[in-house]
Design a protein around this nucleic acid. Sequence first.
DNA 1: AGTATAAGTGAACGCTCGTTCACTGTCAAC
DNA 2: GTTGACAGTGAACGAGCGTTCACTTATACT
Lengths: 188, 188
Amino acid sequence: MRNEHQSKIESFYSANKRMPSYSEMTKLFGFKSKNAVFRVVEKLIDAGMVAKDHLGRLVPTQAFGEVPMLGFITAGLPATVEEELLERVNLDDMLIQKKASTYMLEVDGDSMIDAHIEKGDMVLVERANTAKDMQIVIAEIDGEFTMKYFRKEGNKVWLEPANKKYQPLYPEHSLNINAVLKAVIRKY
Amino acid sequence: MRNEHQSKIESFYSANKRMPSYSEMTKLFGFKSKNAVFRVVEKLIDAGMVAKDHLGRLVPTQAFGEVPMLGFITAGLPATVEEELLERVNLDDMLIQKKASTYMLEVDGDSMIDAHIEKGDMVLVERANTAKDMQIVIAEIDGEFTMKYFRKEGNKVWLEPANKKYQPLYPEHSLNINAVLKAVIRKY
DNA sequence: AGTATAAGTGAACGCTCGTTCACTGTCAAC
DNA sequence: GTTGACAGTGAACGAGCGTTCACTTATACT
């Protein structure tokens, strides 16, 4: 098998969050000698499936945390999809820029439904105390927290839902931005 | 500083996808002796910010690939959010079960808009050749690819959009499932 | 049968790892 | 001023690392 070894390393990596040593790989692959592993790894390196850093240690490359990005799918009328590998993306790197100030919340309620954010969705937000007009924010208005469009015209600020059922919220005392929306994640 | 060291290790980790060795940390922290690092790491371990595996090597723990999950945000009427740390989630582990058969596509078109999937969204799908009624799938119908609800009643199968503008698609010759939808990701 | 190629074993190498120890400097408490 | 805790230095250790070498076994080609 070509990448049977590769996938064993991958599962070790996602279980242990680090690469296995050569002696660990002897057990992984069922070899009795580190040299056998050494030769296997050499081929994996040639195939670009794994890499080594400046001093001998294995480091994960493409296809470890990364997922292939195959192009576009037309959700309208059917069309031939270009199913060729465009690139690979790491979900973490793609979604998280400032790790220290990023957190997640689960959405309850339906006031952002016209922005296609529904109950049960997970939102990835980044702490901030300012936002631009029309950004979606987590904000504290008169002491209570909510997720809405942030609106700003001149020196007037208010919050606006994405649902005609609800009214815009004008702060009586305070409107403090807590975080701005960076991504929405919905699991099926 | 309490976790100035911690965050230096974190940035090393996200840049190199592995933990630094003690000698690398001397450079990272500006020490001249490995022993100084050793003592710092000891404290980080006590604080639960980092861990060691069965034989001395550092392994990433909480707060490396993980993002804090702070609870619910009400998108309807404002409410006090419980801003306490409920748990930490790793995006990769949360979204990807079978890594080898998972890939991503960018959505074009608006036929799934009533399922709150819009143009520009990224969909994470898992290769499969069967699906249950009402699952969202990537399918090939009469030679062309599209994303729709998969419908099955008795031995009749067809595809259904989530947009009243479009009609259900009944296969003339073939309907092959390519993948089933696992997650939707929208970046802002 | 004979030989070349590939794949695995087992022992050895030097090097870096994590850890330990004895020592030096700094600051605060008494 | 002495003492004690704390933080950093520098040298040393045994262990495990990645790598190399010589040897064996199996498969395939003449």
